[in-house]
Computed example of a mutant assay.
Amino acid sequence: MPVNVWGYLREYEAEREEILAAVSDVLGSGKLILGPHVAAFEEEFAAYCGAKYGVGCDNGTNAVMLALLACGLAPGDEVVTVSNTAVPTVSAIASAGGAPRFVDIDPATYLMDTDRLEAAVTPRTRAVVAVHLFGQCVDMEAVRAVADRHGLAVIEDCAQSHGATQRGKVAGSLSDAAAFSFYPTKILGTYGDGGMVLTGREDVAAKLKKLRFYGMEKTYYALEQGYNSRLDEIHAAILRGKLKHLPDYIARRQALAARYDAALADTALTLPRTAAGNTHAYYLYVVRHPRRDAVMAGLKERGVNVNISYPWPIHTMTGYAHLGYKEGDLPHTEQAAKEIFSLPMYPSLADAEQDTAIAALRETLAALGDA
């Protein structure tokens, strides 16, 4: 049997009774949309992250978009972020009417190089989207310092960082608003799409609740332009149960990462680096090699499936050519995209399967003369 980069079936079997009981509770309640489970999950997840308010929405992309709009983004306003991210980050900025601007990454962590942030700010800049990539946080003190000097809103994209911490604070509590995805592959994932925005600001929370529901509050009267972007009651019920397991999910990911660290320390791979002040939740275990494609081919021959996050920097995609960037503008981002890949990483990955992946990786590197 192949070793896959991700899978959910074992986790589902282990939690099956709890999950199906949650679904049954919703279906028997008579309340399918914005019911008690959504309200409870908003409160419980916000409390877990150390935020005051949580507003559930339909997916992580719209969570970023709604967070920007709730923080006052207007059409044409610039938003600084990174090109080394999933397309949804930048798609959300564009959907909110913003104009994305990119800064390069720190080649050691693959996170935003905050030393380059201020140079990207112009008189049109209104916000920064800090992407907490692969399971750890951008240096938010540095981001906040630049934002405060220029009067910018700060949004955390936490789609890959559930439960990660920085200087003792949990991702999602370090900004004006923080966007989460609960897509199935995430550290905290449901069995479909789901998202949430966290904030400590009452005005932003109130705005978010209108924006996700057609611009309405309690009646069918639109107070402003809004959207259909609600978290489903069934997914909220499932996520409430899975939230109780989140510390265990993260602990298992960290244990798997420690096993990779020990087993691969003497290889030619560049292993993940945790930035100072961070705890890493290991949504992904990202390694680097200058002959990445050859390594991946060798692993595939040996029955180990891996992944690249992300093979094409967004500023090089034709869909974003109108932004005016060209290859060479973000050299660290572009070089990383040619060399990084992710090893199997999910809580129900068995030690024996991980050992198989490690052995295959070492065999492949030896065959390439890079042992």
Score class of each variant (00 low, 15 high):
D248E: 14
R167E: 10
I234V: 15
Y221E: 15
K218T: 13
Y183F: 13
H235R: 14
F213Y: 13
M196P: 02
R212E: 04
D232T: 15
L223Q: 14
L152S: 04
Y227M: 14
G241C: 13
K207T: 10
Q225W: 05
V204P: 06
R230E: 13
M196Y: 01
L239I: 07
S173T: 01
G195I: 01
E202K: 14
A236F: 04
S229M: 13
E224L: 07
K186C: 04
F182H: 09
T165A: 09
L243G: 06
L208C: 05
A159Q: 09
G195T: 03
K244G: 13
Y191N: 07
S181P: 01
Y249Q: 09
S161D: 06
Q225G: 12
T199Q: 09
K242P: 08
H162V: 05
K209I: 00
A205M: 07
T219W: 12
H162F: 10
H150P: 09
I234R: 13
E156I: 07
T185K: 09
S175I: 01
I155P: 08
R167I: 00
K186Y: 00
G194T: 03
Y221L: 15
L231Q: 10
D232F: 11
G241Q: 14
L198M: 06
L152G: 07
D157T: 02
S229W: 11
L231N: 11
A179Y: 00
R167H: 12
Y221I: 15
K169S: 11
G172V: 02
A236N: 08
D157A: 03
S175G: 03
G189Y: 02
I250W: 04
E233L: 07
G163A: 07
E224I: 06
A222L: 09
D157Q: 08
A171C: 12
H162K: 10
V154W: 12
V170T: 15
Y214M: 14
A236G: 12
L211I: 05
S173K: 03
R240W: 03
E156L: 07
K207Y: 00
L198E: 05
R240A: 13
A178W: 00
Y220C: 14
T219S: 14
A164W: 01
L223N: 14
A205D: 09
H235A: 15
I238K: 04
K244I: 08
K242R: 15
T190D: 08
T190K: 05
K207D: 06
E156N: 11
P184V: 00
F180S: 05
C158S: 02
A206T: 10
T190I: 03
Y221Q: 15
V170R: 08
V197L: 07
S181R: 02
K244V: 12
Y191T: 03
Y191E: 10
F182C: 07
